[in-house]
Amino acid sequence: MSSFAAIINAPDYPPRIRHQAIFECFDGLDAGEVMLLVNDHEPRPLYYQFQAERPGDFVWEYVEEGPETYRVAITKLN
């Protein structure tokens, strides 16, 4: 994937608002758009939160899987 509608570098956000900022960005996407999440650790808890809060609304694809940098393309389906 070469084009992203938004890029979120998670470590740039304070922990207390990090997931909120990511979800706000995702919610601002149009159907079919993709955001890139960049993180310094495995974002598995965020994936589970997406499954709970946005079931069936996203596709989660790893672009890079650590060990120092994790990059995930998150596509909005609806």
Rank of each mutant, 00 (worst) to 15 (best):
P45D: 10
E64V: 04
E24S: 14
S3G: 12
T75E: 14
V63N: 09
Q20N: 08
I22G: 08
L29G: 03
L29S: 02
D27C: 05
P45G: 07
V38S: 09
D30H: 07
T75V: 01
R71Y: 08
E33A: 08
G28A: 10
L29C: 02
D30P: 01
P67C: 12
L37S: 01
D27S: 12
P43W: 05
A73I: 00
Q51I: 02
G66P: 00
N39A: 14
Y47M: 14
E65S: 09
F58W: 00
Y48K: 09
Y62T: 02
P43D: 07
W60N: 07
A6C: 12
D57K: 05
A6W: 04
A6T: 06
A31H: 00
Y47Q: 15
R18M: 13
L46Y: 04
H19T: 06
A73G: 06
G28L: 05
E64F: 01
C25T: 15
P43N: 10
Y47S: 11
F58Q: 00
F4N: 10
I8V: 15
H41C: 09
N9K: 10
L29N: 04
Q49M: 13
F50S: 07
Y48I: 02
N9R: 12
P15S: 13
I22V: 15
Y13D: 13
N78M: 03
Q51K: 15
G66C: 06
N78L: 05
I17F: 09
L77I: 08
E33P: 11
Q20C: 03
A52P: 04
G32S: 04
V34D: 06
M35A: 12
R54P: 02
P15A: 14
V63F: 03
G66D: 09
S3R: 14
D27F: 05
V59N: 06
A10F: 10
Y48C: 04
P11N: 09
E42K: 06
Y48R: 11
E68L: 11
G32H: 10
F50K: 06
S3L: 15
E33C: 09
E61P: 00
R54V: 01
M1L: 15
A73H: 11
F58R: 02
F58Y: 07
Q49P: 00
R71P: 01
F50P: 05
D12W: 04
A21M: 14
A21Y: 04
Y47L: 15
A31R: 00
Y13N: 12
L29D: 03
E53A: 09
Q51H: 09
P45V: 06
V72Q: 12
Q51P: 00
P14L: 10
Y13P: 02
R54C: 07
N78F: 02
F26M: 04
F23A: 08
P67Y: 12
I7T: 15
D27I: 01
R18L: 12
P14Y: 03
R54Q: 03
A5V: 05
R71G: 01
L29P: 03
